[in-house]
Design a protein around this nucleic acid. Sequence first.
DNA 1: ACAACCTATGAATGTAATTCATAAAACAAT
DNA 2: ATTGTTTTATGAATTACATTCATAGGTTGT
Lengths: 296, 296
Amino acid sequence: MIERTHLAIIQQVSLRGTLTEAAISLHLTQSALSHAIKKLESQLNVKIWSKEGRVLRLTQAGESMLSLANRILPQLEHTEVLMKQIAAGQKGTLRIGMECHPCYQWLLTVVAPYLELWSDVDVDVKQKFQFGGIGALFNHDIDALVTPDPLFKRGLIFEPVFDYELVLVVNADHQLAQQDYVTPEDLSNVTLITYPIEIERLDIFSKFMLPAQSSPYKHKTIETIETTDIMLQMVASNRGVSALPAWLVEQYTNALPIKAIRLGKKGIHKQIFIGLREQESEIEYVKSFVALAKQA
Amino acid sequence: MIERTHLAIIQQVSLRGTLTEAAISLHLTQSALSHAIKKLESQLNVKIWSKEGRVLRLTQAGESMLSLANRILPQLEHTEVLMKQIAAGQKGTLRIGMECHPCYQWLLTVVAPYLELWSDVDVDVKQKFQFGGIGALFNHDIDALVTPDPLFKRGLIFEPVFDYELVLVVNADHQLAQQDYVTPEDLSNVTLITYPIEIERLDIFSKFMLPAQSSPYKHKTIETIETTDIMLQMVASNRGVSALPAWLVEQYTNALPIKAIRLGKKGIHKQIFIGLREQESEIEYVKSFVALAKQA
DNA sequence: ACAACCTATGAATGTAATTCATAAAACAAT
DNA sequence: ATTGTTTTATGAATTACATTCATAGGTTGT
């Protein structure tokens, strides 16, 4: 029988490297872990790791168990947190996943009133997912996903929450600043500043440059995630141009010497969705979040 | 600490209704379960169920734990099976999910040589998924998904394995049998026989009738899943018409008085994909399955 | 009211996890 | 090579915990 402790041991050993350290982090003795694993091995009749010198290398079987541990343990831990919250009279935690960088600013405007309204609900925002936002939703790593790419599949529900236009931000004195709109070719001799994510997920590339087989003179990424401000500062000081939601740029046009220009004749129009697990979509404090998001 | 036994108890109780029956199925006494749950409740400081008369009704907290149990226990059980297989010198099990009914016949032609080639790999085919095929793949309920709807997301890989044309099957003496192709309107006075799945997932509706805002005179579904034969028998005896892959119909045109007709001038062309988890896509016996599928 | 079900619970029991105290092996430095 | 340090492995003792037993206390239906 694979028990929770076995998985915890395997996880900690692969994390810390040695049985001894794993034992410390689990508040047990090295001997306990050694015995526990030995027993499991003889029950299942497989070796979990082999000793190469003094390092423990996971076997095929061990890898399977580690993968199981990484999938299961977070869920157990989260349920325990949930129980604590229920015990404390709270509703629970709404874990929001973000797959849309500029949305961060927008999300803040939704979360603030939400926290007011639901004082007994915690909010937790996550931005990194091993298997993408959809995977995180299926795995119960998050409860709601803010994304521009909905996925209408059984078990999941996606609701559109807001529309915006993606625009090019340039310095007010930039050569392009006078134009009504820019073409993909216009960008071939500028430095483009973006969030540090894959090119396929950057709309300015996937929906504008790539279809026209154009590419910018130079591509710079900003390392930190929350700092849309920094990107705009860079644009303001003429280090390059960037692509951001129109509503976001508007907030800065008074403070900084920047200008928003339409991308292409018709502009690039985007929609943001919130994805939920169908089961949970009727829970009051979940529904309320989506409702607030639609208003914002 | 939520342990595996706790989850097993909660699952069995919600399945069988009473503690006593759950105890029997777990080879324990009723007393053991009562004590175990009592302890958990006092540790977490939440009630798991409340007694309404003699039935146990899960509380909010209990529901969370049940959901956790249903997600986690199958994964533990599967890993144990895997361990047994590894212990026995086997490679493991390839659990194939199917989201494409007519593909069943085709899959058989792939599985047969695969079993020959990989005598130390078991194959398991599943067709029902609580959260859809994609969900099953993310949840590790299956290892490969046969589907017409690929989903290019991080963590998953989809490979096209074969193309086919969807055709209308009619009785050889049917009024439509003489036509080179049929229009959506042609179908408005026939009985259409399909697999028992949602209309949105039936291509004959979603790609042919619905865009033309047409609908059949009558819509009949066949209850059992594997029986494409039955559907063709129905067509052969003039009880209605159906939509199936061309290659499948061809196999029966000699034996039965049926005829395949193109749907629309250009026909409906479909592609079938196999989806895998990225992590596992490099495992030899998994790769080999996709390779064989491409050949078939 | 009684039989036939349930669940709850305290005390006794038995089992299994954990520690303790070493041994044995691997590595680094002298 | 030798020594000191750091690791895992293991048998025996100990402790903690799960489980059972025996029984009381509910609920339901006849």
